[in-house]
Each structure stands twice: as structure tokens, then as C-alpha cells.
């Protein structure tokens, strides 16, 4: 084998290639089948592929991704609430959180890769077995009535994920006939993973902060003394 090697690739591993043909081919295939429904996309060469699609094309995207592009492995469906927390960072709070808290400005929301126009986004991840290819798919859902198509006709395993996203964020997956609570008690009210959901224990008593941390070995002993309590 050593005789065959005429050249040696000494390039360090961290020099990621400037282009990523595998992921670009996947993106081209998606764009070919979905057309304008691909709103935005991002390729990080050697790392990942993010695609934002239109809300109406969500179910169709699953079909294309699985049956045309061959991404048979369904990883998860979840959602993201990009609204800044009305309660601020509890950990840093020095005073009690006012009640009711002021709602933050929607425009302060900073969407992640491939952007976003709404507060809530649905997020899904699929992978192609036998390769290191994976697609992170996103779609916006309306603020006032969050709705999106279901994936259960393509990936049966998506049913439980959609139930969880439904109870945690209040997103309705049209076509999923069984959007009962999955983790929460049946009679639970509210959507706990939305940013405005109050954690009542923290409203009653602010996070006490780190109170009894011992200094690391070698650290100045005096640093830890002020936190006793």
C-alpha cells in the first residue's frame, strides 16, 4: 500500500474545505424539488447544512427529504421560542422580578442560522444513514396561531415529537390526529417551554445564586468568602 502513495496529504485537519460538494448537492436537490419553498439555507463546510423552508411546504419537505434525498433517519422535531425571556436572566437577578413582567420587544428576538420572521420556529433534524450528512430543517410558524403540517405520514416516529412540541410550545401539527399531552399531566394548562411561562417558584423566591461554592484548589481563598450564606 505504501508504494501506491505518491503524494502525502499534510494539510491539518482544522483546515476545513472552503466548499462542501456533498452538502451543496443535497441543497441543490432540495431546491430542485421544493423550488421557492426553500426560503434560506446555510452550509458550513464539513459541519452542517441548515435549510429554512416555507411553512406551507413543511410536510412536502419531509417527503422530499426522505424519499428523494434519502435521509431515512429521523432524529427529532422540536421548536424554538426566540422571544427574549420577560424575566431576564434569573441567575443574575439582584431584585425580585416584577409581576406581571414587562413583555420584551419582539424585534429584539435574534433568530439563529438562516434567520426567521416569527417568534416560534419549528426545528427538525434528519440524517442519511451511511454518510455523515444531516439536515437541520426549520420553518416559521405564525405568532398568533402557530400551525404547521405534520410529518407522521413520512416519518411515523415523528408523532411523539409532535405531541411534545404541541404541549410544550402550543404548536398545532395539522394532520396529526393524536395531539394529546405526552409528558405533562392531562389537565396541565399552558405551554411550559414558551418564554413567557412563569416558573412560580422563582416568582415567589428569586434564585438565590451560588451560595456555598468552595474555591477551586489554587484559587485565591478570599474570592469565595463573600458568597457565604
Amino acid at each position: 500500500m505504501a508504494d501506491d502513495a505518491t503524494t502525502t496529504d499534510d494539510a491539518p485537519v482544522e483546515d476545513a474545505p472552503a466548499t462542501d460538494e456533498g452538502r451543496e448537492a443535497v441543497l441543490a436537490e432540495l431546491t430542485e424539488h421544493l423550488g421557492d419553498a426553500v426560503v434560506d439555507s446555510l452550509i458550513k463546510p464539513g459541519l452542517g447544512l441548515w435549510v429554512r423552508v416555507a411553512n406551507e411546504a413543511w410536510s412536502e419537505t419531509a417527503e422530499v427529504v426522505r424519499h428523494k434525498a434519502g435521509f431515512r433517519f429521523f432524529d427529532f422535531i422540536s421548536a424554538v421560542d426566540w422571544l427574549p425571556s420577560p424575566y431576564g436572566r434569573y441567575e443574575d437577578a439582584t431584585v425580585d422580578v416584577p409581576w406581571p413582567p414587562p413583555m420584551p420587544d419582539r424585534s429584539q428576538a435574534v433568530p439563529g442560522y438562516t434567520g426567521g420572521d416569527t417568534r416560534l420556529q419549528v426545528l427538525a433534524s434528519v440524517a442519511k444513514p451511511g454518510t455523515d450528512l444531516r439536515i437541520h430543517l426549520k420553518a416559521d410558524v405564525a405568532d398568533d396561531d402557530p400551525r404547521i403540517g405534520t410529518w407522521i405520514r413520512t416519518y411515523a416516529g415523528a408523532a411523539w415529537h409532535e405531541r411534545e412540541a404541541h404541549e410544550m410550545f402550543g404548536i398545532t401539527f395539522e394532520g396529526n390526529p393524536d395531539l394529546r399531552h405526552i409528558y405533562l399531566p392531562t389537565e396541565f394548562e399552558g405551554h411550559p417551554l414558551r418564554k413567557e411561562f412563569p416558573l412560580l417558584a422563582r416568582v415567589v423566591k428569586p434564585w438565590p445564586g451560588i451560595v456555598d461554592v468552595e474555591p477551586m484548589p489554587g484559587e485565591d481563598e478570599a474570592e469565595g468568602e463573600g458568597d457565604e450564606g
Binding site: 434569573y90 409528558y183 405533562l184 399552558g190 411550559p192 411561562f197 416558573l199 417558584a201 422563582r202 434564585w207
Partner: peptide, 13 residues
Amino acid sequence: TGGPYWDSYSVTK
């Protein structure tokens, strides 16, 4: 007391 989940929405304190 609820322990590390003292502020959780789902844990009984």
C-alpha cells in the same frame, strides 16, 4: 423539597 428542580413547572416541591 424539589431539590435542584425547585423551580420546575412539573416537579412537586
